[in-house]
Design a protein around this nucleic acid. Structure first.
Lengths: 226, 226
DNA sequence: AGATGTGAAGCGGTTCACAGCT
DNA sequence: AGCTGTGAACCGCTTCACATCT
């Protein structure tokens, strides 16, 4: 009877897997695969089938018992949940090797993100055009965030500058930050930060290499949740 | 009485935080700070003080009750645990924007890693010198791994090539892989894979942006842990 | 029969609270 | 008194097992 919109809260661990499912389902759709079972999706995603079912159940009852999930339909639901249907303009702060590479890589456009602004504090880099966008000075940040409706920022500065950049971004009104620097960012509640750091990951691998002989084996681990 | 070497198993979540402690302690040491309390370290690491104590207790009882931890000594113990004292030669496979940027960035050398080999399957890139290292063809991989004693590989190829590269790396004897492509890698037991993916992280941020109005706030999350 | 959706058990990690050392 | 080290409670996520539906 009750037709209440029973909005379930989606666990963070599930959110982190949705992008994986999205990619795999997109591949299946491109290959004209019509349906997929939790077992089939779990296989390629490298997880347990029960976990796939539980993850998908948070989005709704989109499967058909005895048959599986409709690939196109499920893909659409996941993309809606992830907000892929909207346009997400992104600002990259710090155009050294990494920032420049990310701006030029297809990583943003391929998933519906758009490099809308580039910012650096080095006068030599300001004015240069990277990936079709002119690099602006740090002072232009606040104005850029409001005029371009920027929601997401990527920090690719050295660690020493990261906290200052984060403070400016927060002051400018940005509430989602992807931090490629190894610095731990101190931000107010409500601001979402995800950390991606090369050297941290290398050190974790180094740890496992060093402890290899002891214990039987270390299995594959999911990515860091910043 | 018992002087048994009671080798504790260190939880994966703890391992993922050790690099953070290492960096912060190194900063403190550079600033001539002699001791630090769990509370002090927790503050800058953005975690709970009890967690710091529990993490460090897995390494041994290196603190002094009533006083705290000796910065230099604790740093040394963590670095030994992480294997920073050893030399870790790394091979980067895929020298597009990202691979080239990583090779040139200080991210490796700053933490004791060394870019020992570069591999790409594009004939145009083979022979080029990046970061002082000559790019070799994919076919040279097996020989490079053994002759250079490579232990850790970084995959920065497009997603479509990543599984094939991983298979070659595993066949060549590499057992630690840092995967920057969004592909889910299928590897045998004993091979450690960590995933770092720009687009996945952006999608997680996109999810949170889209669900911002509902619920009070989403706090800062640890890295994914892969 | 076949596959989903889900309560319940299991597990790992975090936090609490305090005993124990300096 | 101060701060570490740690058992115990707590919490969230994963896995199991099976009721439920096609």
């Amino acid at each position: 009877m009750s037709d209440m919109v029973d909005r379930r809260r989606i666990p963070e661990a599930t959110v982190a897997r949705l992008p994986v499912y999205q990619r795999l389902l997109a591949e299946m759709a491109a290959a004209r695969q019509v349906t997929v079972s939790s077992e089939g999706l779990a296989e390629v995603a490298g997880v347990n089938a029960a976990m796939v079912r539980k993850d998908l159940s948070y989005l709704g009852s989109y499967g058909t018992r005895g048959a599986g999930y409709d690939v196109e339909f499920l893909l659409h639901q996941i993309e809606r949940e992830l907000g892929v249907d909207r346009d997400w303009p992104v600002v990259i702060v710090g155009l050294g090797n990494l920032g420049t590479a990310l701006a030029n890589s297809g990583g943003f456009a391929s998933r519906g993100f758009r490099v809308a602004a580039l910012v650096d504090n080095d006068p030599h880099r300001v004015g240069q055009v990277v990936a079709g966008v002119t690099v602006r000075d740090m002072g232009a940040l606040t104005e850029l965030v409001s005029s371009r409706c920027l929601a997401i920022a990527v920090i690719t500065t050295p660690a020493a500058a990261a906290q200052d950049v984060a403070d400016r971004l927060v002051a400018a009104g940005i509430a989602s930050i992807l931090n490629f620097s190894p610095a731990v960012l101190n931000v107010p509640d409500g601001v979402v930060v995800r950390q991606v750091d090369l050297s941290t990951e290398l050190l974790v691998l180094s740890f496992h290499e060093g402890h290899r002989q002891l214990g039987p084996a270390v299995a594959e681990l999911p990515a860091p949740v910043a």
